[in-house]
Design a protein around this nucleic acid. Sequence first.
DNA 1: ATGTGGTGAATTGGATCCAATCTTACAAAG
DNA 2: CTTTGTAAGATTGGATCCAATTCACCACAT
Lengths: 241, 241
Amino acid sequence: MTSPSPENPAVPSLDALIARSKPRFRTATEFVEFTLRDGILSGAIPGGTPLRQEELAQQFGVSRMPVREALRQLESQALIDFTPHKGAVVTSISAADASDLFAVRMALEPAALRLSLPHLTQADLLRATDAIHDMDQERDLARMGDLNRRFHMTLYAQANSPRLLALVEQHMAVFDRYLRFELSALGWDHLKQDDHHALLDACAARDITTAEAVLIRHLATADQALREFFACRQDVREDSR
Amino acid sequence: MTSPSPENPAVPSLDALIARSKPRFRTATEFVEFTLRDGILSGAIPGGTPLRQEELAQQFGVSRMPVREALRQLESQALIDFTPHKGAVVTSISAADASDLFAVRMALEPAALRLSLPHLTQADLLRATDAIHDMDQERDLARMGDLNRRFHMTLYAQANSPRLLALVEQHMAVFDRYLRFELSALGWDHLKQDDHHALLDACAARDITTAEAVLIRHLATADQALREFFACRQDVREDSR
DNA sequence: ATGTGGTGAATTGGATCCAATCTTACAAAG
DNA sequence: CTTTGTAAGATTGGATCCAATTCACCACAT
């Protein structure tokens, strides 16, 4: 493991994540997998970091076996590259990868919204409103990611398609790796709450055409912002080494 | 492991799959994971089958560890349900699950096609044509699935979005679990080659609107056929036990 | 007869050990 | 000086062993 990113106070250290989430799991494999994913998504473990099994086992206080099982699962989620006899490396982030990710989100999320919108309840809309308001006052990066995900997932929740929803949630989680760059680029405050309100209004009016248009524009804006950010500041490539 | 489905000659036995694919991998984990997935997707291991680690280890001629790692990866791909201290069970198939799968495919594949179509080369179109012609004479179920996947993936190949393409290919592979039911429902011959030709023509003409409409109809038809098939013959539920 | 508690086997989770492979450094030959 | 071969260390892959949990069965009490 390399540095726990002490230069960026918004990124928690991996050790902090380990201490915080240790008692929440019954099996060591679950614990290691969840915490490693959290570390990668939050930026505590930057792209390019080689993940040595022995080292991780010591940090987590377990043997190498649960570490290996956790690495296998992270590999299936495309968060690490696993090469036989060479080990695991955290996948790198880049403008190209971000656009790739947005291509998936722009395929999945409008579909989920279209399926869900006719069945959205008043309670769903209220929960989405709450999420927006909570975001207004949130200053913590990880929690902001959770709230953003909660807002969107609430709108998709009635889609009645478990696979689709799981994919949507998974790829929104991967987006968390880019969230702090988007916030750097667009600023914390205004963010894109305009889009969120417009999307919510269109959903309340059951206007699928407008809702989809807003959602697509919302995602395209974020994609564009990240592209420009990476183009301007290639020095801030998050890959260590 | 339960019966190797001797009642259905179209489904190969797991032992046959093991013998055929043993020497193709460098690590035992890869070998077990690939072969188990093949077994699940081809129907050799039906939904609901409990997967005992010790038993699989003996069948594959390895120890329990590579089996466990393989099961972890299959769990990440939603092919098995893994419960701590209880073990793994192959996920069941159903009309609802098929529709769920088609919801994902109808979200992903039109998006991939839209991204890929402008960059399709003449060589791509020729390869797609070849795949269609090969399908006309194919009688083997597994190979038919491969050809169908090859035809579609060829049309999406220029999408320049690795994540999107990986998801498309993965979910087309999962569809193989339902392919033999669709063939039972619609018959082997005409299948839906009409759709394939129409889709190919629209792609050759760079007509994205028509191509997308054909593709969506193609998928919707298959979804509908499977729904009716499962509704009529609930007795043929593929789950053992 | 039914519900309850406990005991045993069966199965998985995890740790330790050994084998196979890769990497690095160094030395020797060209 | 470059290149190639080799050997030592590091790291992962796999096997075996032990611990923890679950489940099924049966005795026992109500």
